[in-house]
């Protein structure tokens, strides 16, 4: 289980990634986060909804009502906007940089040789 403090800054990135290919809705997104992370990250409902409202306000995503299948339940779907895609690639670059920097300060285990 990952500490939510650490991952907070990247919730938006995670959600935007899942919206890159197709629009999706709340529970489907939370389920995919869970399975892609190998059950290591379970996003709280309130965290997810808070991210939705914030990103919608910032214009990174748009919401619309739709039915999953014919006659199914109407749900709020979220779709990524162009601004959202731009923000996503920005965050990806930021992460690569962060990773590169932090990595330099992480002690390598002796089992990996004397790196």
């Amino acid at each position: 289980m990952i500490s939510s403090d650490i991952i907070r800054g990247y919730n938006d990135t995670i959600i935007l990634y899942l919206l890159l290919d197709a629009p999706s809705y709340g529970y489907e997104i939370s389920k995919r986060i869970r399975s892609i992370s190998g059950e290591k990250y379970i996003i709280k409902e309130t965290t997810l909804y808070s991210a939705f409202t914030r990103m919608e306000k910032n214009g990174f995503i748009e919401s619309f009502y739709a039915e999953k299948e014919e006659g199914g339940k109407r749900r709020t779907y979220y779709r990524i906007t162009d601004a959202g895609r731009a923000y996503y690639s920005e965050k990806c670059e930021e992460w690569n940089l962060t990773k590169e920097v932090i990595e330099k300060f992480i002690a390598k285990e002796t089992a990996n040789g004397n790196a």
Partner: peptide
């Protein structure tokens, strides 16, 4: 918010 959270909880 309430409606959305209810939907997510119900789905789960």
């Amino acid at each position: 918010a309430k409606q959305e959270l209810a939907q997510m909880m119900e789905d789960k």
